[in-house]
Design a protein around this nucleic acid. Structure first.
Lengths: 217, 217
DNA sequence: GTCTATAACTGGATAGAC
DNA sequence: GTCTATCCAGTTATAGAC
């Protein structure tokens, strides 16, 4: 393979395999075989299998986090006083949903991996915190401005529901396709986007702002 | 261990380990070691590691599904014309949340395992469908009566959000504890219950019944 | 039913030639 | 940087004694 960085090449295949089977379900040899790279080179580049896993997780996290912070800042500036729960959630999710809609297979694999990690006790609590907390705090800051009377514990729990709904939707298990007998397509990220924002925003309002539920911005 | 069924005993320890690390992260030897049972007996009782995993998953699914169907039927009878989205979701979730509140460690491990499976492409689509679809169809039947104008695709997507929010909440990764700096306790299933029902019900209404959002039952 | 022994194999990791 | 050869710990699974 001329002109290809073998390091990035390995990360791509490791990402896809880790997303399907989880780190324990993947062997270094299998990653190397798929990438048509010698198994010993995986250790040359990354040292250990665990380090390879961390490298996969880090690579896109940094790109994504930076963009999500920009997206929320831009929204807050743009909206000014007319800030809304829908707008905040939209700004938080947009960088993820846009990449999903665009269909880049690397990003789709990455999101499946995040979903798996998020729901696995062995890594979930620690890794998700380490990589994504700053972005979430920014979202909650904006939501506090929309709902000044919201209690922090309510905001945290509602974010937890958002996180679960989002990661399952990104995990692409084909679940909703089977459940609906083909009426829904788990790869249709446009359909997801249209429903997810109002669903989540309505939930936040109901729990965090029980009195003011009626006035939708 | 006198008077203990070694089969159930093995299932308990396998359940706990599978829930923590996923099937690939667990060895038959480790299950046997924890259960203080000879490794060869695992094969004697269950045949293969995969069969052990299926046995773990099946054992409680049957108990739980039967009770969830009863719970929803009882609610539909009791509520009659005054059926509500909140009530339907509550009836659907009650058998799960009650067991979580009661704190039986076996059930808590099982719920963590379901969360992990739900978000792993390797098994998620197939196993969740095979075990849980009848219960979900019953929920959607009741919701259709609450929201006659709801479209099926909307109901399926909203259920998907419910499923993601629920399984992440049951996965007990300690995520929300860290995120909230200790203000929330992921093991506090009462706190979960109080917020989850209104959050999910509001989301369903907003997406499936955009016109009638104002009149809460 | 239970345990010992072992077959047959695969895993991560490395030393060292090129 | 790349690849061959290999170490060795650990894997599922089973045969066969008790």
């Amino acid at each position: 393979m001329p002109g290809v960085d073998p390091r990035q090449h390995l990360l791509d295949y490791a990402e896809a395999l880790f997303a399907d089977h989880g780190p324990h379900g993947v062997t270094v040899r299998e990653v190397a075989r798929r990438a048509r790279v010698d198994p010993a080179l995986v250790h040359y580049y990354f040292g250990t299998k665990t380090a390879l896993f961390e490298a996969v997780f880090t690579r896109r996290a940094e790109v994504l986090n930076a963009e999500r912070l920009r997206s929320m800042d831009a929204y807050a500036r743009r909206a000014g006083e007319h800030i809304s729960v829908e707008g905040a959630v939209e700004a938080f999710l947009e960088p993820i949903l846009r990449r999903s809609v665009e269909g880049d297979p690397g990003w789709k694999n990455y999101f499946r991996l995040v979903a798996l990690v998020n729901n696995t006790p062995e890594w979930g609590g620690e890794m998700m915190t380490r990589y994504f907390d700053p972005v979430i705090r920014r979202l909650l800051d904006i939501l506090r401005r929309c709902m000044p009377e919201a209690r922090d514990v309510d905001l945290f729990w509602c974010y937890h529901f958002l996180s679960g709904a989002l990661t399952l939707s990104l995990s692409q298990t084909g679940r909703i396709d089977r459940l609906s007998g083909g009426a829904c397509d788990s790869a249709d990220m446009e359909a997801l986007h249209r429903r997810m924002i109002p669903f989540i925003a309505a939930g936040f309002r109901r729990v965090c702002q029980p009195q003011g539920e009626a006035h939708v911005a």
